[in-house]
Design a protein around this nucleic acid. Structure first.
Length: 767
DNA sequence: AGCACGCCGACT
DNA sequence: GTCGGCGTGCTC
């Protein structure tokens, strides 16, 4: 290094500062000085390393050229962890706004959205003594797996003389595009030598690539020819293509009955976005993310798709993330959290089954992915498509107001009629031959006929366990959870009573905790008992059960595969049986007790019941043979059940909206004000913000649902030595106000809100 | 989250 | 007299 003493010193450049979000439970970023030697490598969205108290942490730059707040003396950024910014400004803005809206610490939100650091970045940091040995960075050590991918060299001249196995390999490549060496081993013995010789001839090209043993890409998929759309599909496709070509952001509600071909509409719209070299994002409910669904997209668009799912390792997730970020892959498919996938030049976001409750993250960073999809698409100037056979009433009323454009698909291609639904009034029908009144005579007969015809049946019961509660015949008390006071469910096979609210479990006792008498009797029917009764009554029929107790993750598909292979005649299950792919042998669907979801203490109970019945009914008759649905209920005249039986969404939606109006609700709920009084303004604010955070994600507690109206946090006012905080909330529950108040107070009592505040809740006005 | 500071109970 | 409980506050 040389120093020229005669050169005048450079004028000192003004010190620059940036805000960095750190992975801490703190809802703001911290200001750091930007050393001039790092300035060229730091931009919005960059991942940097910073000193923080006695530690060093990785963080994301959320603002550049900020001014430090008064009284703080920023420390300098210590290093840059990656050369390229992790987030583009648009996605960063979305994440910042989501963190802000749902009142969650920005650093934690960004950490959750970001991929793991590259191993070499971690090593370099550690070598420079920057990271303490104890510092865990996500995914710092994940095994990588690389695979040899073989592709045809385009337009290569073929020598006349080729071995039969060489020709076989070339033919395979022609139909498949590209193949991994491992896959070739399934078709030819010792493929390595053949590939090597073809590579020497310049006919194929090999490339080492990091790839996963991903279940979504395990099986090869033949490419498909797009089917000719029906006229209804054509109209929807034209509307979406038109919006994509106009480059105007627009949100569409695609209302299409089960089997009406919504997926084909998504495929065509996404194809148009791809033709415009724009990115696409498809969100599906957690449970619907299956290899079959992904297969349809692979068949149309090839394997260059990022499938984001929870089984990915940190390494796999980072690979998928970087492929999207770089623009090498332009289509992402995933559940809720995929809304934060770094898709470039977003042209379209599709939210399939937009009414599905799994779009709502219930824990930690509470957010509604469907709402964020609308926001993200709007920001990106992209088209957003919300698809459902049974739209949420929020989306439906927005469509009615003209805020979303409504597209309707009413015909089932191939004119498979929706199955007829029979309502069985449990109060009027004698119990069937099984002796259990929950298997009525009509249902019993229908099951017999189904089995006799060699068909399969699905029996839906939304209650896990053997019996939902135990009652003491001596004193009449129910066995309840010591922590939650919720009735304990008997899980006979596990030998446990279990609380479905907090997961408390204890061995099944014989004596009543209240009076000590040995008189506990099971009350009610769960899937475990139903399975037993069916196996006994319809022996030798093969009965299986699918619920959270029997199935975890991949085994859901395993059970459904067994049904497809006809190894099971009767399938008992909870919600889980309503989703997933076709079960063509199922001709009968029985809903054991529709009242169950109707009795839920939630203002959306009727809506959920309609959705559930519609979905479960859609499972019948998807194959060659016509389907049939039996719904058992004690409320045969309830409008949600009757509308579901008639496949009448419009009728249901109008009745439900009218019902909510009459009860003083808006389409989304009802207005209340929550007032928090506390001696300490910061604690009052903290309590209020927590309530807002819960409310924004539509879940204050299991029993009280509210959402926030207007800007929050509202100003604090001082009143007689107390600090008063007022929130405007819209309760989403029936009956709402007492429950909302109770759950807010309960949370404060639990210390969850971190303040000993007093709260009152009063109605303000109707919308 | 981690870490320091701080003010009240049982101990070498 | 000190060790340590975790309540409260702060970290750029």
């Amino acid at each position: 290094m040389t120093i020229d003493l005669f050169e005048p010193a450079e004028p000192a450049a003004a010190q620059r500062y940036v805000d960095v979000a750190l992975p801490l439970p703190v809802r703001r970023a911290f200001t750091y000085a930007l050393p001039s030697e790092l300035a060229s490598r730091v931009a919005l969205g960059s991942r940097v390393a910073v000193p923080f108290s006695s530690r060093k942490l990785p963080g994301i730059v959320t603002r550049i050229d900020t001014t430090p707040a008064e009284g703080v003396s920023p420390r300098p950024i210590a290093g840059v962890l990656e050369d390229e910014p992790l987030f583009d400004p648009e996605l960063l803005a979305l994440l910042v706004e989501a963190a802000d809206y749902y009142l969650h610490p920005i650093g934690e939100v960004l950490r959750a959205a970001a991929p793991a650091l590259r191993a070499e970045a971690v090593r370099a940091l550690r070598a420079s003594g920057f990271l303490e040995s104890a510092t865990e960075l996500p995914g710092a050590r994940v095994a990588t797996r690389s695979v040899l991918v073989v592709r045809l060299v385009p337009d290569a001249e073929r020598p006349a003389r080729l071995g039969p196995r060489q020709r076989q390999l070339l033919a395979l490549l022609e139909s498949r595009g590209e193949v991994t060496l491992e896959e070739l081993a399934d078709h030819l013995k010792e493929p390595r030598a053949i590939v090597r010789s073809l590579e020497q001839k310049g006919l194929v090209h090999t490339e080492s690539r990091e790839i996963t043993a991903d279940p979504f890409f395990r099986d090869p998929v033949a490419s498909d020819a797009p089917p000719e759309p029906t006229s209804a599909q054509r109209a929807a496709i034209d509307a979406l293509v038109g919006a994509l070509r106009a480059s105007q952001p627009a949100t569409f509600l695609l209302h299409g009955v089960t089997g009406s071909g919504k997926t084909e509409v998504y495929l065509r719209a996404i194809a148009e976005a791809r033709a415009q070299r724009k990115g696409a994002l498809l969100l599906v409910p957690e449970i619907a993310l299956t290899p079959q669904l992904v297969g349809r997209f692979r068949a149309r668009f090839g394997d260059s798709i990022a499938v984001l799912h929870s089984a990915l390792t940190e390494k796999e997730r980072a690979v998928a993330w970087r492929a999207l970020r770089s623009g090498a892959v332009t289509l992402a498919i995933g559940a809720r959290s995929a809304i934060f996938a770094p898709v470039r030049d977003l042209g379209i976001i599709v939210v399939d089954e937009e009414h599905d409750p799994s779009y709502k993250q219930e824990e930690g960073f509470r957010y509604q992915a469907r709402d964020l999809a609308i926001l993200r698409a709007h920001r990106a100037g992209a088209v957003c498509v919300l698809g459902s056979a049974t739209p949420s009433l929020e989306s439906w009323s927005l469509a009615r107001e003209g805020r979303h454009r409504l597209l309707t698909l009413d015909a089932r291609p191939g004119a498979r009629a929706l199955p007829p639904v029979e309502i069985v009034d449990l109060a009027r029908h004698a119990k069937g031959p099984s002796g259990d009144r929950r298997i009525s005579a009509p249902l019993h007969r229908a099951i017999e006929q189904t089995l006799a015809a060699g068909d399969q049946a699905v029996l839906f019961l939304n209650r896990r366990g053997f019996s939902p509660s135990l009652r003491c015949e001596a004193c009449g008390e129910l066995e309840t959870c010591p922590a939650c006071s919720v009735p304990l469910t008997e899980h006979r096979r596990a030998g446990l009573v279990r609380c479905h609210y907090c997961d408390y479990a204890a061995p099944i006792g014989t004596t009543c905790r209240a009076c000590g008498q040995p008189a506990l009797e099971p009350l009610g029917l769960g899937t475990e008992k139903l399975e037993e009764v069916l196996a006994h009554t319809f022996a030798p029929a093969r009965v299986a059960r699918l619920d959270r107790d029997t199935a975890t993750g991949a085994s859901i598909e395993d059970v459904l595969d067994r049904v497809r292979r006809r190894e099971i005649d009767l399938l008992v299950g909870t919600q889980m049986v309503t989703k997933g792919h076709d079960l063509p042998g199922v001709t009968l669907v029985g809903v054991i007790l529709a009242d169950q979801s109707l009795a839920f203490p939630d203002f959306r109970a009727a809506e959920r019941t309609f959705q559930l019945l519609t979905q479960v009914a859609g499972r019948a008759g998807r194959g060659e043979r016509p389907g049939r649905v039996i719904v058992q209920t004690y409320q045969p005249h309830h409008f949600a059940i009757r509308a579901a039986a008639k496949h009448d969404f419009l009728g249901f939606a109008e009745s439900e909206l009218e019902d909510r109006r009459e009860l003083g609700y808006s389409p989304y709920g009802r207005l209340v004000a929550v007032r928090i009084d506390h001696g300490d303004p910061d604690r009052a604010r903290a309590a209020a913000e927590l309530i807002v955070a819960h409310a924004r994600a539509h879940e204050l507690s299991k029993s009280g649902r509210v959402e926030v109206l207007g800007p929050a946090p509202a100003p604090i006012e001082r009143l007689r030595g107390r600090w008063r905080f007022r929130l405007m909330l819209r309760a989403r529950e029936r009956p709402p106000l007492r429950r909302v108040a109770q759950s807010v107070i309960a949370r404060i009592d639990e210390g969850v809100l971190g303040a000993r505040a007093s709260v009152d809740v009063d109605p303000v006005s109707m919308l």
